[in-house]
Amino acid sequence: MTMLLDLALVAWLLALAIHVARARDDQGAIIAFIAFGLLLGLGWTRLSAIDVAMTEAAIGGGVTGMLLLRAEARLRQRSSQPQTPKRTTKAAAAIACTVVAAGLALAVLSFPSPAPTLAPAAAAALDSTGLGNPVTAVLLAYRALDTLLEKVVLLLALLGVWSLAPDQLWGGAPELRQTVAPPPFVYLGRILPPFGVLIAVYMCWVGADAPGGTFQAGTVLAAMWLLIMLASLRPAPETRRTTLRLLLVGGPVLFFAVGFLGFAVADGFLSYPEGAAKPIIVGIEAALTVSIALTLGLLVAGPSSRAPAP
């Protein structure tokens, strides 16, 4: 019975992927892509990877879709003629995708059975971190360097978006609100954020011991912030504000500081002192959540489109 369900899920995912690739109207393709992200989240749940499932639903189904929709709307404003890619471009993209998919499939199929795994080692060392969730232990203790660099990449992406603004608008506020926000949307923007913030705080806190964590919590926070900005309840902030920039870099900076402190009080870069790993990790996660929420929100808001107030 569950086998049937899994097969249906796989068929559904494949059909939706083909639909996304073939859809002629961009908006429809993006909406199908959002549905694809949510379904893929279900797929990860079936593989018992709840942490991945939550991230996929939040990023793949949420933020990416919103980014793409904004980009599509902006492209539509710019050009009156819808531009379709050339046949050769399409063919090249199709070939590249097929090669990558085939390569991945080959790699997965060529694993010896049982596949090599570090899961027992990760579970065995869990006690020394004081954490209960092995995924968080991998992300913030065993492979902390990867996580740290990933957050720096996010900041670089935001810098890339910001640098699209013309010189005279640098440091100004991005424009996100609609000309007239419909009343039901404003109502949603008033009542949903308290729940969202509560859920985000819970996700961040519970991440140490159960599925959840910084990225999921940060995405939920970002969604609530975007809702408030889209409903015109609060304007987007000026990007030159010092508090905003401090909060943006706060998470990675704290991470770096703890990393370098590791030379003095523990075994080296990014190693935590014995017994104090958990409180340090939870502290880093809290700062990272705020940074991720701001970064994702500002990524969607886009480059500044108004000159900074004098």
């Binding site: 419909p182 039901p184 949307f185 949603l188 949903l192």
Partner: peptide, 20 residues
């Protein structure tokens, strides 16, 4: 129950927006 309530709110808002 909270999941149901939140889904209610978002579904109602989405319907209103589309109808609008």
């Amino acid at each position: 129950v909270c999941v149901w309530l939140l889904a209610q709110i978002s579904a109602a808002t989405a319907s209103q927006l589309i109808a609008g």
